[in-house]
Design a protein around this nucleic acid. Structure first.
Lengths: 257, 257
DNA sequence: CAGTGGTCTAGACCACCGC
DNA sequence: CGGTGGTCTAGACCACTGG
């Protein structure tokens, strides 16, 4: 996996420093002890200290300047980065009631394009799931999801008003680790307007996602249509880490409806 | 030791491996040589090899499994990650003509909220820049930007039909490194519709951004209104890297118009 | 069991900063 | 100049995988 943070000593050093920052012992702009000092204080090697600092730097809590030192960043950078969350996790702590009303739950054979996209045989079974998402009983989004049935053959038999797709995927050994997301503004058509409780022509946010597991395999394609006045998409962009690879990237958009 | 001018060793190793992948010597699913083999092949320590592999892993070109080995990821994960680009850079290679028509270029004192947001004194000068963005002479977006004049006092004197704001910021020692982005769907009002050449009520994508430099200081706040049918926002989400910090994050939205 | 990646150490030299 | 972070080394042990 990535270098993120596992490993006891590095994690511990990171934790202690993060605590000092969040408790205010270290304030934005303050200089941290030098790497060699921290090395002595924690009784670990300098390499370990550097791993902890690198982790904090990636998350924007600190930044280093060669020849000067390491400093606490302004808290603006300390907000959570881009995170891939299920719809449920995204809103679970914010709203009183999160519910899903299944609109369509069925299985059908994959088209040629879909087979190529998912890396499965043409005609292999795809599971298709459409749900109406509500928060506090207000309709917020229409969630349409498509994935190979082989990933978890029991999917069609579950109660989709309560089941979490991401939890099922993880349990099946396919942990969602990355998603390519695109959003655009459209006008609601009659069906969408009726489901979302608004009028045709009103603005909706259409988000298309392609979710991959750790091996890079595409496991879920989704199309979510949000009521424009009830959802806002947030993201954190970072300056490119100088990736000198040029990739054709084979643009494919197999679900434009 | 090192043959001819050595770039960093880690970079060199990364580069060679990335080349093998992009040239097809190593294909998705293939196992890379072990870290110890690579260490010998390149004549560098295993730690250095691991840094190179970690870098490739962060960019999604490879992934490692403890006890098994390191493998080339499916190319889906090899697409460019979330990147912070100026509008100009974003589209420069795609369209024939990229142009900006200044709508408003002026300086005004900061309100109390704005002063707090930017970390400047109330009443300090803010530079405000509104531009109409066109691609191949078609209006695509209205770009409204706000930043402290102190960052570059020459800003008001420049020719904003050709000048690049990001380039100026970088030259002034404030490199944009991260941005918090939010997008939502709205209906165009009369002014927006007229500028974008559409009708009132048609869907537009409104993107709010807050850009920070390396020290975490907020340097630019932007509000871009795109024609819904001429823009799509793309992002790449990744599974949370376990950031155990909880931050109040003082939600402030000082420009909701 | 042997082989893999994951973590860690103690020490070295380099590049850069500010005095 | 002395002190900082940036890079690198050679070797060690651990945790996990697979036959």
């Amino acid at each position: 996996m990535t270098t993120s943070s596992s490993g006891r000593l590095t994690t511990r050093v990171r934790q202690v420093l993060a605590d000092r920052i969040s408790r205010g012992d270290l304030r934005p702009g303050d200089q941290l002890p030098t790497e060699r000092e921290l090395s002595g204080e924690f009784g670990v090697s300098r390499v370990t200290v550097r791993r902890a600092l690198a982790s904090l730097s990636r998350d924007g809590l600190v930044y280093s300047v060669q020849g000067r030192g390491t400093f606490v960043a302004a808290d603006r950078l300390a907000e959570p980065p881009n995170t891939l969350l299920s719809f449920h996790d995204l809103v679970a702590n914010t709203y009183v009631s999160v519910a899903a009303q299944p609109l369509r739950v069925h299985t059908r054979p994959a088209t040629l394009d879909e087979a190529e996209t998912f890396g499965i045989a043409p005609g292999a079974s795809l599971f298709e799931l459409d749900r109406l998402r509500t928060l506090d009983d207000l309709p917020v989004a229409i969630d349409s999801t498509l994935l190979p049935l082989a990933i978890d053959p029991e999917l069609p038999d579950l109660d989709w008003s309560h089941e979490s797709l991401y939890a099922r995927l993880t349990a099946a050994g396919h942990t969602p680790v990355a998603a390519d997301y695109s959003v655009e503004a459209r006008a609601a058509d009659i069906r969408v307007a009726r489901l979302l409780g608004t009028v045709p022509g009103s603005p909706v946010l259409v988000a298309e996602s392609e979710v991959s597991d750790q091996s890079g395999r595409l496991i879920v394609a989704g199309l979510i249509t949000y009521r424009g006045d009830r959802y806002r998409f947030r993201s954190r962009l970072t300056a490119g880490s100088a990736v000198p690879m040029v990739q054709p990237s084979s643009g494919r958009a197999f679900r434009s409806g």
